[in-house]
Amino acid sequence: MTSLSIKANQYWSFSTESYKGLEVGSFIQDVTGSYWHIISKTDTSNGYQGYAVVNRSEFYKVRDDITAGRLKKAKYENVVIMSRGTEPTKFDGDLSTDISYVVVGKNTKVKSNQFSDAEAFYKDVSQTFQPSKVYVTGHSLGGAISQFLSAEYNLEGVTYAAPNVYRILSPEAKKRVDNGYMDRLMTDYTHDGEQIGVFSQWGAPLIGKQYIATGSGHGLQNFGSHFDSSGSVKLKISPEDIQMLGNRIKNVAVNIDTPAGALEAYREAEEKAVRKMIRQATDELYGGKYSLLDENDIDNAMAEIAKNKTGGMYRFHDEPMLDTLIQDLQRKRRDLLEFGEDVGYAGYKMKEKDAELGAILAKELNATIHSGNSAGQATGSALGKLGSDAWMKTK
């Protein structure tokens, strides 16, 4: 199987095209110049519009194979499903879907809706064309639907300003989100401060990864000018943010001292308690209630009820496990402190480079201004001399 390497700006193109009312058999062209063929579409009474597209080269290859008799019907390796986002004029479908399933988190299995329609479309495309891999994309509500399909069916994709729909996922899909599996499949890009793309259903876990892009606003067009030359989204980040993150990581490292210290304190407290218990039992050997026993009997009794004996001391816990846990915590503390230092240093260097660049620009600007002033003075002198010469000639 040959997988596609789809860039973020190509996914953006697909999401943009999904708003245009495309027809099966037509072509679209993405921002990289690549062509894609519409092989299937759906437009349901609930308001869902979805399209399945394949790369032009694969479309032509399959068409030639059918013509030559090598294939009986179309079968594609890679298919992209793009789902249209909210159209505010569609009060019967889009807005009711936004409120019921995105905001409220209503069960998608209760009645037919855009999410169940998207599932049906995905299953139909999979059965009809038998793709080896399906990719999903969309913006806003279309992004939410794409994330839903991604989590339910392990599909790779990129979305734009997609609100979180974790609460309507099946238990199996939620597990994939909770254990971090979706981080490798789904990526969403949104803008800082916009209310839809950052909506998380009141703190529900994100489906995959989400990044804050440069730019502002919810509209898909607001992402168009924020891709770099490689097709990746330009992310919004500052040196101060990086330094703050480094400090937070170091704070986490310092907080590891608390559980590690508690384990050490437990071990010390247990040692004191065991010594006290043995001492009290030994005192009872001589004329006390344990006068018929000797110290070997006490030792045997302790050996029977203790977990193990290390360093001449009976332990009522798994000492090797406790020791390993403490060492692991201490090692994690060191690693996090070093990582926090590295992250903070990266932020410092970024800030330093910004300052250097600012100094260079200021120097160049001052030089330009100085050059302009000098040129102005020279021009003024020349004009003055020219005027003086002209005046002398009139005399």
Rank of each mutant, 00 (worst) to 15 (best):
G261Y: 04
V177T: 08
V103K: 12
W12I: 06
G376Q: 06
D318F: 01
A151K: 10
K351D: 15
K111R: 14
T187Y: 03
G85P: 11
V158R: 06
K133C: 09
A303W: 06
V343R: 05
S229G: 00
Y19G: 01
V136I: 11
A355L: 10
F199C: 01
L322I: 11
V79D: 03
I81R: 12
D299R: 13
P259L: 12
L322F: 13
I6H: 08
D188Q: 08
W12G: 02
G344C: 10
L263M: 15
S15Q: 03
V102N: 00
D335E: 14
N308I: 01
G138F: 10
G372Q: 03
L337W: 03
Y135V: 08
R334Y: 09
G47F: 00
Q280T: 13
L357Y: 10
T310A: 11
D124T: 12
G21R: 09
S225P: 00
G246A: 05
D30P: 02
A367P: 00
A382C: 02
L169E: 07
A253P: 07
R275V: 06
T258M: 13
P163E: 09
G93W: 00
V233I: 12
A161V: 06
G219A: 11
G215W: 03
Q114L: 05
D342C: 03
V53T: 10
Q201K: 12
A118I: 14
T2C: 06
T214L: 09
P239L: 11
D354E: 14
D318W: 01
N308E: 15
K307I: 01
K123M: 08
G180I: 06
K351F: 08
D228M: 02
G157P: 07
M350C: 08
R248L: 13
D178E: 15
A346V: 01
M1R: 11
K289F: 13
N255D: 15
T187R: 09
D192P: 00
S232A: 12
L325G: 00
G380V: 00
A355W: 05
G380R: 08
D283L: 11
K393N: 14
Y266V: 00
V53L: 11
G287W: 04
A362Q: 14
D297F: 04
K309I: 07
H317K: 01
